[in-house]
């Protein structure tokens, strides 16, 4: 490219920098700039001036006095743009933790404490009921165990060859060591509202003491441990008494047995 042609290219670079070249020529200039340092330097020199031309169009509030061609846009434009920006920001901020005001936090804590308290009270009540139920079951189990143990002992005593058997009406009185049993095998059912009651006469006593009450089963069988130290008892009797027992016999005894002292 001769000097004249290159000078013309430098002029073309200026038009390129201004952005006033048609596309076909602009492509050629771009290619040329890649290989020509002088033209590239010319571009760098003129580009700030072109930007300044654009800046000269900046809208101005006092456009007329400032020599500007236009006043700035109204606030509605900004509002319109920011309305499109903020929703995006809202979406981004939606994932941020919500900061509650102090009074709301306090109120929430009070509600939480109340709910917890009510829940705890309910749980405590249920716990107490459960504990009572467990205690009752334990007591029942213990009583059953004691009863079972008593029956086992009774069976052992009744079958023991060492026991003393005393035949009475409808059955036997059995003594084994310190334990005493009334074992009926054909005892009639007592009248309605009545039960059988055992009586014991302790050594040295002047009258019978009231002891356990009982009724036979449907077969007329009743095995009754008498809660007394057999070693101190000299006589045993059974009578029909009102339900709940009596302090002293109110009917003729079905039997009276004197034990050997």
């Amino acid at each position: 490219m001769n000097t004249s042609a290159h000078d013309e290219m430098l002029d073309t670079v200026a038009v390129y920098a201004l952005g006033a070249l048609p596309e076909r020529e602009a492509r050629a200039v771009r290619e040329h700039l890649r290989s020509c340092a002088e033209c590239r330097e010319e571009y760098r020199l003129l580009a700030p001036a072109v930007s300044a031309v654009g800046i000269s169009a900046e809208a101005c509030v006092d456009a007329a006095s400032a020599g500007a061609s236009v006043a700035p846009p109204g606030p509605l434009l900004k509002k319109r743009i920011m309305q499109q920006i903020r929703p995006n920001v809202g979406e981004m901020r939606a994932v941020r933790p919500i900061v509650w005001p102090a009074y709301a936090v306090a109120a929430a804590c009070v509600v939480a404490v109340l709910i917890t308290s009510i829940f705890n009270t309910s749980l405590n009540s249920q716990l107490r009921e459960s504990q009572t139920r467990v205690a009752q079951l334990n007591a029942h189990a213990a009583a059953t165990a004691r009863e079972l143990n008593t029956q086992r002992t009774a069976i052992a005593d009744l079958l023991s060859p060492d026991s003393q058997r005393f035949e009475v009406a409808n059955g036997y009185v059995i003594k084994h060591g310190s334990r005493l049993y009334i074992a009926m095998n054909a005892l009639p059912e007592p009248p309605k509202g009545k039960v059988y009651q055992a009586w014991t006469l302790r050594q040295g006593a002047s009258k019978m003491s009231p002891s356990v009450t009982f009724v036979p089963n449907g077969s007329g069988v009743a095995v009754v441990p008498v809660p007394v130290n057999a070693a101190s008892v000299v006589a045993v009797a059974v009578s029909v008494e009102p339900d709940g027992g009596s302090k002293q016999p109110t009917s003729t005894p079905t039997f009276v047995l004197k034990l050997a002292s």
Binding site: A57, E58, A59, C60, V70, P72, P73, L77, K78
Partner: peptide, 9 residues
């Protein structure tokens, strides 16, 4: 915005 609007106008 005044610059952008001014150039566009």
């Amino acid at each position: 915005h005044r610059l952008v609007y001014g150039v566009a106008f």
